[in-house]
């Protein structure tokens, strides 16, 4: 694998996480549990899709094969997506939406803080921008974790169930492969071991404040680094890519 190929893959990984999770949240637009939350999830979706757009643009430039940001978003198949399994999980009830978002926000908060120091100036700039936005997302979702965990018996049961179900997808957040190895040498990538220490600490703190227990002895699912996904992604892509495939080259 060349350095260039590694960088393209790295950008796709980051972009896909934001694009797929942003799309998931956008499914709630107009259907949020109440007005303020509808606006909040739509705002977060907008930030994530905006970040994905910049990252896809950069991936397309580095790749240099004449593909555009739209080609990358709408004309790749399921096995060519590198978003985490966590990002593609369905919204289900509000507790699942919030738990998925909180676990991701906590990761992104520390990840993008580290990426600001990247030797790749473009990624460092995108990280600086993204980190400011993620700070707001994390504050929002960590408060919800507390509210749901300490709320009623029903809300507590639901948020604990959500965490129990999603926990198996958190292991691969920190998985590193050849791409990371190559880019770590160049001081471009983030060492995910560093992120893991901070993530563990923050998640434990928020869970403790919320009366949520950390699941134990969970078998961790993996595969997204090689483009292997849960069955959820295919359905999402079918909807997200439909317009572009039905009307090739269509523009907003």
């Amino acid at each position: 694998m060349t350095n260039q190929e590694a960088l393209v893959n790295y950008c796709l990984r980051l972009a896909d996480n934001n694009l797929i999770l942003g799309h998931r949240l956008s499914e709630l637009s107009g259907k949020g549990p109440f007005l303020e939350e509808d606006i909040a999830t739509t705002n977060i979706a907008l930030d994530l899709i905006g970040q994905a757009s910049s990252l896809l643009q950069y991936a397309a430039e580095v790749e240099g094969k004449g593909r555009t940001e739209d080609d990358l978003a709408f004309l790749r198949g399921e096995r060519e997506f590198y978003n985490t399994l966590l990002a593609e999980q369905e919204n289900k009830d509000f507790a699942v939406t919030i738990a998925r978002q909180f676990l991701t926000d906590a990761f992104d908060y520390f990840f993008y803080d580290e990426l600001k120091k990247s030797a790749d100036a473009r990624l460092a700039a995108l990280a600086e921008k993204s980190h400011k936005e993620i700070t707001y997302h994390l504050r929002h979702t960590s408060k919800w974790m507390e509210r749901l965990g300490e709320g009623t018996e029903e809300s507590h049961r639901r948020i604990q169930d959500a965490v129990d179900n999603l926990w198996r997808f958190t292991g691969e957040l920190f998985e590193m492969n050849e791409v990371d190895e190559i880019l770590l040498k160049e001081k471009i990538a983030v060492d995910l071991n560093v992120v893991k220490i901070q993530w563990d600490k923050l998640v434990a703190e928020v869970f403790a404040n919320s009366g949520i227990s950390i699941p134990e002895n969970v078998f961790m699912q993996r595969g997204s680094r090689e483009g292997k996904h849960t069955e959820k992604l295919g359905y999402l892509l079918a909807e997200m890519q439909h317009l572009h495939r039905a009307f090739p080259g269509v523009q907003w």
Partner: peptide
């Protein structure tokens, strides 16, 4: 420069 990444 954008105010927010996704600013429409």
């Amino acid at each position: 420069t954008p105010t927010y990444s996704g600013c429409p």
